[in-house]
């Protein structure tokens, strides 16, 4: 892996827009999103429908059939993603950027063994024998702290629990050693008890391999503890871009509102404040709405 932090950023996004053509007219899910990403951990937060998941998919070129992506710039490691052929895309996806999905119950193929799915991810990008790919997959399963990799290798997704399924997902998506990993709500479907454990495994691997991470979540405190930088999205736009450590000093009323809605353990609150939405948030810049 070459060090790119000093040179060009890993990912440059400028004015990204995702439209969907529906029978009831066009819907703009992402409206002019811009950011650059180095080898860092970026959190994207927002409520449902804010366009955070669509941003992740657009970066991977996997917007659903009726959607269209436009952008002034969409560049990954200096390569223009908008002009890639399907074949070039396949060399990028998995190998150089990958995504961890929300719920292993649906995101793993139910009729293929866990091992076959991991091996497939590896052999898609590395010309190795089946036996070697198997060894790699077993080692990767051990890396995500699965105790009996041999046995888990031969199981089917319905035979493992959610926490284990998500660790399998992490193993599968990290085995080709991508440079960028997009985690789309990776722990939302999990029990609170295994959530931290899965996050810790992800955190370890991302640090160890020096990968960049885009962490998509609606959980503001989680994102702030896990990431270096946070983008707050509202209705398809970034309304605030701030360092995770400076979250408490957020200026945008939406971010402040989100923070205000969270219950605090050390203060007694009879009622939690409700977010009062301002129509100006939809179009106004940070300066305009804080005036």
């Amino acid at each position: 892996m070459t060090d790119l932090t000093s040179a060009a950023p890993l990912l440059e996004v400028e004015d990204l827009r995702v439209h969907f053509h529906t029978p009831r007219g066009a819907v703009e899910a992402v409206r002019g999103l811009s950011f650059t990403l180095g080898r860092e951990r970026l959190g994207i937060v927002g409520e449902s429908g804010s366009g955070k998941s669509q941003t992740g998919r657009a970066i991977l070129g996997l917007t659903a059939g009726n959607g269209r992506i436009t952008a002034k710039t969409l560049r990954f490691q200096g390569q223009d993603l908008l002009s890639l052929s399907p074949k070039q895309w396949r060399a990028v996806r998995g190998a150089r950027m990958s995504m961890i999905m929300q719920d292993p119950k649906y995101s793993l193929n139910p009729v293929m063994t866990v091992g076959d799915q991991i091996v497939e991810a590896y052999r898609q990008h590395h010309r190795v024998s089946a036996a070697e790919a198997r060894l790699r997959a077993l080692a990767m399963l051990a890396r995500v702290k699965i105790r009996d990799p041999e046995r888990v290798f031969a199981t089917y997704p319905h035979e493992v629990s959610g926490g284990m399924g998500q660790r399998i997902m992490i193993a599968m998506m990290l085995i080709p050693e991508p440079d960028l990993i997009i985690a789309d709500e990776p722990t939302s479907a999990l029990d609170v008890t295994v959530r931290l454990q899965v996050l810790a495994i992800l955190d370890d691997l991302v640090r160890e391999r020096g990968m960049a991470l885009i962490f998509i979540s609606h959980d503001l405190p989680l994102v702030s503890s896990f990431c270096d930088r946070i983008l707050v999205m509202y209705k398809g736009r970034v309304v605030e871009d701030l360092k995770a450590s400076e979250l408490h000093a957020a200026r945008h009323p939406y971010t402040q509102g989100l923070l205000g809605c969270l219950p605090k353990l050390d203060q007694r609150q009879e009622t939690l404040p409700v977010l009062r939405r301002d129509p100006r948030w939809e179009h106004g810049t940070l300066e305009e709405v804080t005036r």
Binding site: L62, Y106, P176
Partner: peptide
């Protein structure tokens, strides 16, 4: 289904996504 998206994220060819991943489940 989501697992189809997973396969595409892995960089699996469209033919394999259709004939192996999706058809494997359609067979049932």
């Amino acid at each position: 289904q989501e697992y189809v998206l997973t396969a595409r994220v892995k960089g699996v060819s469209e033919a394999r996504v259709i004939w192996r991943h999706a058809l494997g489940n359609v067979m049932v």
